[in-house]
Lab assay of single mutants.
Amino acid sequence: MIIKINGKYYKIKKIEKNPNGKYTITTENGKKYEFKNVKIFSEEELK
């Protein structure tokens, strides 16, 4: 799965839903981001 952050695309390693309704997304390079609204892309959609 792929996520778009600030115009760049990252591969997703893990998605966790937090009790506060936000999502914590861990990218393949180990960085964590927290979002309220998340749009996930499949690799097929990006081709």
Rank of each mutant, 00 (worst) to 15 (best):
I25D: 00
K8C: 13
Y23V: 08
I12R: 00
I15E: 00
E44C: 13
K47W: 02
E28A: 13
N37G: 06
K14I: 08
I25Q: 00
Y33M: 05
N37F: 14
Y33C: 08
K13A: 14
I5E: 01
T27D: 06
K39V: 15
E34Q: 12
V38Y: 04
K17Q: 10
K32N: 05
I5V: 11
G30H: 02
E43Q: 05
G30V: 00
K32R: 13
N20L: 05
F41E: 06
K22I: 15
L46M: 11
E34W: 10
F35Y: 08
E44G: 10
S42D: 09
G21V: 00
K8E: 07
K4S: 09
N29Q: 09
K4W: 14
I2T: 08
I15L: 09
E28C: 15
K4Q: 12
Y23N: 01
G30Q: 01
F35H: 03
N37V: 12
I40N: 05
E45S: 12
I40W: 15
F41C: 15
T26A: 01
I25T: 00
S42P: 07
V38R: 03
N20K: 06
E28N: 08
I12T: 02
K22W: 15
K36G: 10
E34G: 03
K31V: 10
K32H: 07
I3M: 07
M1V: 08
E45Q: 11
N18I: 03
G30A: 01
V38Q: 05
K13C: 13
K17L: 14
K17V: 11
I3D: 00
K4N: 10
F35W: 05
M1W: 15
G30F: 01
K31L: 12
F41W: 12
I25R: 00
K8R: 13
Y9K: 04
I15F: 07
Y9I: 07
K14V: 08
E43K: 04
S42V: 11
N18C: 13
E43D: 10
I2W: 15
G21I: 00
S42A: 09
G21E: 02
F35K: 04
I15S: 01
P19N: 09
G21P: 00
Y9A: 04
K36Q: 11
E16G: 03
G30S: 02
E16L: 06
F35P: 01
K14S: 15
N18L: 13
Y9C: 12
T27F: 15
I3N: 00
I12F: 02
K8I: 14
K8P: 00
K17E: 05
E16F: 08
E43L: 03
F41Y: 13
S42L: 14
K32T: 14
E43C: 15
G21S: 02
I3T: 03
E45P: 07
Y23P: 00
K32Q: 13
N18H: 12
K47G: 13
V38I: 14
I2P: 01
G21Q: 02
I40E: 06
I2C: 15
K4G: 07
N29C: 13
G7E: 04
K32W: 04
I25S: 00
Y33G: 01
E45F: 07
K11R: 14
V38E: 04
F41P: 06
K22T: 15
E45K: 06
N37D: 13
N37K: 12
E45M: 09
E16T: 10
G21R: 02
K11M: 06
I40D: 05
Y23R: 01
K8S: 08
G30N: 05
I40C: 14
K22A: 14
E44W: 02
L46E: 07
I15D: 00
E45G: 08
N29E: 14
K13L: 15
T26M: 06
G30K: 01
K31Y: 09
E16K: 06
E28I: 14
V38T: 04
G30C: 03
L46I: 13
E16N: 03
F35A: 10
K8Y: 09
I15G: 00
Y9M: 08
S42Q: 12
E45L: 09
N29I: 03
K8G: 04
K11C: 07
N20M: 05
I2V: 12
Y33W: 11
K14M: 11
K4E: 13
N18P: 02
I40L: 10
E34F: 11
E16C: 11
I5W: 07
E34L: 08
K14D: 07
P19G: 11
N20S: 08
I15M: 07
N29A: 08
P19Q: 11
N6K: 12
K39M: 13
K31A: 10
G21Y: 01
T26I: 11
F35Q: 03
L46K: 09
K11W: 07
M1E: 04
M1K: 07
K39F: 12
N29P: 01
K39P: 11
N20A: 06
Y9P: 03
E34Y: 14
I2M: 15
K47L: 11
T24M: 09
K17M: 13
E44K: 06
K4M: 14
K4R: 13
N37P: 03
K14P: 00
G21W: 01
K47N: 13
K36F: 13
K17W: 09
N6Q: 10
T27V: 12
N18K: 12
T26K: 01
E44M: 07
I40Y: 08
K11Y: 08
G7Q: 06
G7W: 02
M1H: 08
K32S: 09
I25E: 00
T27M: 15
K31S: 09
K36C: 14
M1L: 14
E45T: 10
Y10C: 08
E43A: 03
I5Q: 01
S42E: 08
N37W: 15
K17T: 05
G21C: 03
P19E: 12
K36I: 11
K17P: 04
K14C: 11
N6E: 08
E44N: 08
E34S: 11
I5M: 05
Y9N: 04
I5D: 01
T27I: 13
F41K: 05
I12Y: 01
L46A: 09
N29K: 06
Y33R: 02
I15R: 00
T27Q: 01
M1D: 04
N29L: 06
K47I: 14
I15H: 00
T24Q: 07
K22M: 14
K39S: 10
K22V: 14
T24S: 07
N37I: 11
G7H: 05
K11P: 03
T27H: 02
I25H: 00
M1A: 07
G7F: 03
K17N: 04
P19F: 06
K47E: 12
I15A: 03
M1R: 07
K17G: 03
T24W: 08
E28T: 13
Y9E: 05
E44I: 09
V38A: 08
I40H: 06
K14N: 10
S42Y: 15
T26W: 15
